[in-house]
Amino acid sequence: MHVAHYLGLLHRAEANLADAYREVAAAHAAEADVFHIVGRLAVQCDTHVERLAPFVDRYAEEAPAEPERLHAELFAGARSGGLGLLRDLHDLYLMVSYADITWTMLGQAAAGLRDDDLAAVVTACEAETATQLAWLRTRMKAAAPQALVVA
């Protein structure tokens, strides 16, 4: 059974995402909406990490060694300026996409395990993750013409 592997991936992915949100908030504090919203999304990711923790413990005997590093691969550190904001949101989008599909796989596993508790957590967190993606997409679409064509 490899559920623990995916739990570990997601646990790490959500923790990395919270860190990245905070880094982006600090780097782009002058973008007031980004600053306030990603600050709140970071807290949302913290909650995801907490809600995953009992399942990480429950399936721990199957835990693999340290899963792949995601933070370093997908997020190079915050940049500055209009183009920098777009690139940073773009990085976040990829990180959230990774989390999103991982939640989906974990939902599949919860179904196979008949683990209703895990399924309930997946349902709630997956919806929030989907909204994070939608917000990033909305914000990036608004920013892109000015950043890529005008500035």
Partner: peptide, 19 residues
């Protein structure tokens, strides 16, 4: 119409950034 029209606070932000 590529995205919602730019709201006031964002207009001033673009002016602040010089675009």
């Amino acid at each position: 119409t590529w995205s919602p029209p730019t709201h006031a606070m964002q207009i001033f932000r673009y002016a602040e950034q010089g675009s």
